[in-house]
Design a protein around this nucleic acid. Structure first.
Length: 934
RNA sequence: GGGGCGGUGGCGGAACGGUAGACGCCGGGGACUUAAAAUCCUCUGUCCGCAAGGACGUGCGGGUUCGAAUCCCGCCCGCCCCACCA
């Protein structure tokens, strides 16, 4: 009997040995193809949780697999070490952010090492060290020189009591209060630094060169938010140009009012004196409201008429100008033309505030409805409609008529009938694409503001209840059946649109834009949601922005040679969380690099996303040229390393970074390309995301729920190899799912079985193994190589483990037969260990060495599979009758079609099923099945 | 509202358009043991049947096909992201 499998003994032993032997040191080797595998670096919170393991362990498995495949693999690790929690710890526990961070890194590095991953620790990079942030600042300086960095005023969340700006996560709850003191947060305008990421917008939309998950691509496209349309110039009555952006210039003739963002610069000038007070009040309301109610979906529209009018350039209609918080100053031009007939927001606004609606796009389906009030038509109308084939539906006070869009003339036909029957003191309206009012003396269309008014007045004369209505739309809205017909946002033929009436829907936007351009009142325009990246943070624990303010010279960038601008380590964090740099005299005061006069430093530090935007380059040569002065033409990493390793081949990590981090790092790489630092466009060729491990109860893991799974405990109990294998086996990696404390037991049992399989002697037979037995065993071996290889290629980690389990089960059975001890048996065991090595590196190494094989298994080549050996000799041929499986035949793999069909038809079960029926057709799929149709 | 991902046994999940449910967990039965744990063997989608065998079965409804979990159309449900973006 061998000694039992005790992972707690063998795992630390091998980890120590591998480290001593520098087994995972990655060094440039021009004779090998390179593979840069990167997994997202953690924030040093102080504890490595199961989510980190889930992300990193399978990534390590794949990196190890690539290494065995003969690649020279770089798989580095580091820490994203600047950020808010360190400042909080400083305030709560009186420990300096630096000490807190470095102590956490110490602990997490130990935890990471317990994973047994092949991280090259000699390339570790910690973003909060001067040797790292010197280059972060260097990038700022380069951006500045390239005209990609600029300063402008922008709002920040500010706590008036703590006198400090707040990060997004420091603002709590729907009331938006300060996390420390509970004071309602206000907006404050500050001068801040921005990077011109928008200079790369179009390029960021190009994913043709990278293999990234569909959903990440979708999220980034959505984030960039490209809209194609036109800028159209309206004029105020005074003559000021008022430009709006619209994606639907084809609806211009339906503009019945304009809406400006409350912060729009023209609002103050345009507001009529008698509205001024109300407008000021609304602006204040909007400034608060947009913050408080950002989350509510069905927000009631609010707004205010400012007493001014604009002229629609296409038809000279005079339209009122409103302000409302549903128009954002930060998008487009901060002003819109409102077309309530074809935009749901404008429609809701118009309905609420009694603004007219003019339809200008026909319905694509051409359908219409009409409500015929009792007494509004002469006798016989219903019968005439029935005869003409119009479907009707009775109601208490009349009946509805559905006018189908299928026949071209049905609308005209209906109107002709209605005119014939309508009584002089009443009317019949038709609501479809156009809205038509049939009076005894003629038909009026809601095709202009003037006609809208005229129709409304006439209806109000005829029907006293209509006098409550401010607009035709409001009157029609009262009739339920019309509601779905009063607004639509589809493309369709233009109607009521002056010279462009009749333009088909598929060319309407283009034709209108051209028409506007010819007249000089509009132009083709593209708009994006993406804004420039505000990198300023009013925080201490970050990389200082290398800028100096001089009374004489103004804004002066710190010279390259003077970098890094050191973050003072003796700063005291105020209990309010305010930026300690503002009070650090030694940091604050400096001399101007240009004139030598007194100057002050920028106290803002950089967003931590800046640090993580280039870390994959830092790993190439961490803290490159520390202590040597930098220059404008420096390179922040060893160019030889860069030339060999870049770009990243496979990047793994959580989907939560789909937008910010993964857009910023793409931006960085494109800037670096334009600087001449790299010669590629995208930082990471392949991206794969893992899912999230939930608590055993299916909920998100959290301390308050008490459902947190601690990896350290698991390692102590089962060993790292079991944890690694279970994280691969338990779920589809990209999906994740609830933790299962029983499931991991199954994996633990499996590794015990592997241990015993390899070390316990089998019962060698007295007879030699038959050729068939040998072939069967070798088939198992080579099929398993094939499966496991393919699954690792495709990140299908769960089936890698299940494949190895099946192989183990098969070997368990074979062990009791004559094949035990044969060459084929040794091949099988050796293969099992090699295939196991990436997943469970410790047990694989232990068994490898114990069975007399040369250390280290991790330096062995990945086994090749032989397709001939993997091929089946005997296959199961399925016989279907009318698609149902009726028999399974064991036949030689190379059976001919005729022989297969013959065998199928000869089978007694098949005979029974086709007895008395006529065989119409036989489909043969080689190696698979015979399908008989009767 | 827009976009993405998903829906298969009691559970996690397998399945180039071709044997649905591999592998593992849970559960049943058995061996070993004074006993338990561990380990090993074995059964395990549902229904009918003593059995042989048969019927049903991948969220729902259609379609394509000799054959659909897989492809197409229309729905329903869940999760995630974005969201008054003109």
């Amino acid at each position: 009997m061998p000694d039992p499998y005790i992972p707690q003994q063998i795992e630390p032993k091998w980890q120590k040995r591998w480290e001593e032997d520098r087994l995972y040191r990655s060094v440039i080797d021009p004779n090998k193809p390179k593979h840069y595998a990167l997994t997202m670096l953690p924030y040093p919170s102080g504890d490595l949780h199961i989510g980190h393991w889930y992300a990193m362990a399978p990534s390590d498995v794949r990196a190890r697999y690539m290494r065995m495949r003969g690649y020279n693999v770089l798989f580095p690790m580091g820490f994203d070490a600047f950020g808010l929690p360190a400042e909080n710890a400083a305030i709560e526990r009186g420990i300096h952010p630096y000490q807190w961070t470095m102590a956490n890194i110490e602990k997490m590095r130990r935890q990471l090492k317990s994973m047994g991953a092949m991280f090259d620790w000699e390339r570790e990079a910690i973003t909060c060290l001067p040797g790292y942030y010197r280059w972060t600042q260097w990038f700022f300086r380069k951006m500045y020189d390239m005209g990609l960095a600029y300063r402008k005023r922008a709002p920040v969340d500010f706590c008036p009591k703590c006198n400090t700006t707040l990060a997004r996560e420091q603002v709590w709850g729907p009331d938006r209060v300060c996390e420390r003191c509970g004071t309602p947060v206000i907006k404050k305008e500050l001068e801040q630094w921005f990077w011109r990421i928008t200079a790369y917008t179009e390029e960021l939309l190009d994913f043709s060169r990278i293999d990234w998950p569909e959903r990440v691509v979708a999220m980034q496209i959505n984030w960039v938010g490209k809209s194609i349309g036109a800028n159209v110039t309206f004029r105020t009555e005074r003559g000021d140009p008022l430009v709006v952006f619209t994606t639907r210039p084809d609806t211009l003739w339906g503009t019945t009012f304009m809406v400006l963002a409350p912060e729009h610069p023209l609002v103050d000038e345009l507001t009529a004196p008698e509205y001024r007070e109300a407008v000021e009040e609304y602006k204040y309301f909007a400034a608060r409201q947009s913050e408080i109610d950002r989350l509510s979906t069905e927000k009631e529209k609010t707004g205010l008429f400012i007493g001014a009018y604009a002229i629609n350039p296409v038809n000279d209609e005079r339209i009122p100008i409103w302000i409302s918080d549903y128009v954002l100053m930060t998008y487009g031009t901060g002003a819109i033309m409102a077309v309530p007939a074809h935009d749901d927001r404008d429609f809701a606004f118009a309905l609420k505030f009694g603004l007219p609606v003019i339809p200008v796009i026909d319905r694509p389906d051409g359908a219409a409805r009409s409500f015929v009030r009792t007494g509004s038509v002469r006798e016989g109308f219903a019968e005439a409609l029935a005869e003409a084939g119009f479907p009707t539906e009775a109601r208490n006070d009349g009946f509805y008529v559905s006018i189908p869009g299928t026949q071209a003339d049905s609308l005209h036909h209906y109107i002709a009938l209605a005119r014939e029957y309508v009584r002089p003191e009443a009317w019949v309206e038709v609501v479809g694409g156009p809205w038509l009012f049939v009076f005894a003396d003629g038909v009026l269309s809601v095709d202009s503001l003037e006609n809208e008014r005229r129709i409304l007045e006439r209806c109000q004369q005829l029907d006293p209840t209509a006098r409550e209505c401010r607009t035709v739309a409001e009157m029609l809205w009262r009739i339920r059946s019309y509601r779905g017909f009063l607004f639509h946002a589809e493309y369709g033929p233009m109607i009521n649109s002056g010279p462009l009436t009749g333009t088909p829907g598929d060319v309407a936007v283009q034709k209108t834009t051209e028409w506007l351009a010819e007249r000089g009142v509009g132009e083709f325009t593209v708009n994006y949601k993406l804004r420039d990246w505000c990198i300023s943070r009013q925080r201490y624990w970050g990389a200082p922005i290398p800028i100096v303010y001089c009374d004489r010279c103004g804004i002066v960038p710190v010279p390259y040679e003077d970098l890094p601008v050191m973050l003072p380590t003796d700063a005291v964090i105020p209990p309010t969380g305010e930026n300690a740099l503002k009070y650090h005299e030694g940091f604050l005061h400096t001399t101007c690099p240009q004139c030598g006069g007194p100057a002050t430093r920028e106290t803002d530090t950089m967003d931590t996303f800046v640090c993580s935007s280039w870390y994959q380059y830092a790993y190439l040569s961490p803290y490159y040229k520390e202590g040597e002065p930098a220059h404008a033409d420096s390179i922040p990493f060893d160019p030889e390393e860069g030339k060999y390793w870049l770009p990243v081949d496979v990047y793994t990590g959580g989907i939560e970074h789909a937008t910010m981090h993964l857009i910023y790092t793409r931006f960085f790489t494109k800037v670096m390309r334009d600087m001449g630092l790299v010669d590629f466009d995208e930082p990471m060729t392949v991206l794969r995301n893992q899912g999230i491990i939930l608590g055993e109860d299916g909920e998100k893991m959290s301390k308050s729920r008490g459902n947190v799974v601690a990896p350290d405990d698991l390692v102590e109990r089962y060993g790292t190899d079991t944890v690694r294998a279970y994280l691969m086996f338990g779920w589809r990696w990209s999906q994740g799912g609830p933790w299962d404390s029983m499931g991991i037991e199954g994996v633990y049992r499996w590794l015990h079985r592997v241990w015993n399989l390899v070390l316990e002697p089998g019962s060698a037979g007295f007879q030699p193994a038959s050729p068939k037995e040998i072939a069967d065993l070798r088939r198992w071996t080579h099929r398993t190589i094939q499966r496991v290889t393919e699954d690792l290629e495709n990140f299908n980690f769960n089936t890698v483990v299940s494949g190895l389990m099946e192989f183990t089960n098969a070997l368990q059975k074979a062990k009791e037969t004559a094949v035990y001890g044969t060459e084929a048996w040794e091949e099988a065991i050796e293969t099992l260990l090699l295939l196991l090595a990436p997943c469970c590196p410790h047990i694989a190494e232990e068994l490898w060495v114990r069975t007399g094989r040369p250390y280290s298994i991790h330096q062995q080549p990945w086994p090749e599979y032989n397709p001939e050996l993997a091929a089946e000799e005997i296959i199961t041929l399925v016989v279907q009758i009318n698609g149902k499986v009726r028999a399974r035949l064991e036949v030689p793999a190379d059976i001919t079609e005729e022989a297969a069909k013959e065998a199928a038809l000869a089978d007694p079960a098949i005979q029974r099923h086709i007895a008395g029926k006529k065989v119409r057709k036989i489909v043969y799929v080689p190696g698979r099945l015979v399908s008989i149709v009767v």
